[in-house]
Write a protein that binds this DNA or RNA. Structure first.
Lengths: 183, 183
DNA sequence: GGAAGCATGTAAAATGTTACATGATTTT
DNA sequence: AAAATCATGTAACATTTTACATGCTTCC
């Protein structure tokens, strides 16, 4: 099952919604980490309904408009989503990680914390590689002027360093928030 | 022209390479921000050769292997890449931004700095939205336990906050590095 | 003897984007 | 009078992923 389907489930796990509602939420400013379009949306909903992951809650037309189809997640849908959230996921796929964290309220701290610790470990590993590589480039070349290709190489690596540090810090905070059971 | 083509140009702007070399570099640990596969790679190279953006530098077979085709960027290729790098680019597309920065050594500080300042401004705007939204959710709901959907909403926004702060910090550093003309 | 590396490329499948189609209502 | 909003959906196109295809050499 592709990520969009899980993205849709993650919204329906919170409240019943119509396809139109889901699109609004996804393409809005907050939770804007995943965009969707009609051609992914409606076939996905039909498919998931066929698989018994979601079901129609209501199907009412408000006077003139096309009938608004409000969906609700099923027990099977919740289980499917939970299983996906509890799975480690490809290293380095930030979108997927964020999407999973958006549904991490569904899983137990005992399951979530090891996932976060593993994720942190991975970021630490990559951070070490980046800092080593940036240091090596600087040592071997001395001060780099901004018209040097290696200048750009280093600044891009520095961005990676910033990203990894931020991720590690977030994992630390998250582990603490979950352990304290509050934010 | 799609981003992969520019990614390939950004490598060839630094040194002549074969398709195989480019794939190794892209899927390697450093500069791993853009992955490519054969079906994008070889047709793209053929297309860009047809457009005069790159040209064959050598085409030699080492005894048994398929002949290694080493490409070199043309003057037109450099100009095309520079024009792309100097263009503002879609807000929020981090991959594209990173890719452009990887070739920012090609453009003048007078062109680059305004781009960085505009980028910083955009990140500041989004940061303000995220912090406002996180604060609102916390105020309206009090302490959130880790089994509450809003807990996950807040932690995801906090990740966004971390990302935006990191981006702003990087822009600040980058502007300084370019102005000082050294890193 | 099998796996991995070099090096090119193609085919098929999945996924994603853009545009179109309907149609009444409300806002500009 | 035109544009935007609600609400569903489809068609055509572009892009991306995964797998296949060749074939010789070197490493385990």
């Amino acid at each position: 099952m592709s990520s969009i389907q899980y993205a849709l489930l993650s919204l329906l796990a919170r409240e019943p919604l119509s396809g139109y509602d889901m699109k609004q939420q996804m393409n809005g400013r907050f939770t804007a980490f995943y965009k969707i379009n009609n051609n992914q949306l409606y076939p996905s909903l039909a498919k998931m309904e066929g698989e018994g992951l979601i079901e129609l809650l209501s199907h009412e037309r408000e006077s003139y408009r096309p009938a608004r189809k409000v969906y609700k997640i099923t027990e099977a849908g919740i289980e499917s989503l939970k299983a996906w959230v509890a799975q480690p996921g490809k290293p380095g796929d930030w979108e997927e990680f964020l999407l999973k964290q958006y549904s991490s309220w569904l899983i137990e701290p005992e399951v979530l914390i090891p996932l976060l610790e593993e994720n942190k470990r991975q970021h630490e590993e990559i951070l070490a590689e980046y800092t080593a590589r940036a240091a090596m480039l600087r040592e071997q070349n001395g001060p780099l002027t901004s018209d040097n290709p290696l200048f750009s190489t280093v600044v891009v690596i520095e961005m990676g360093v910033g990203f990894e540090r931020m991720s590690i810090e977030w994992c630390d905070n998250m582990i603490r928030w979950v352990k304290e059971n509050r934010i």
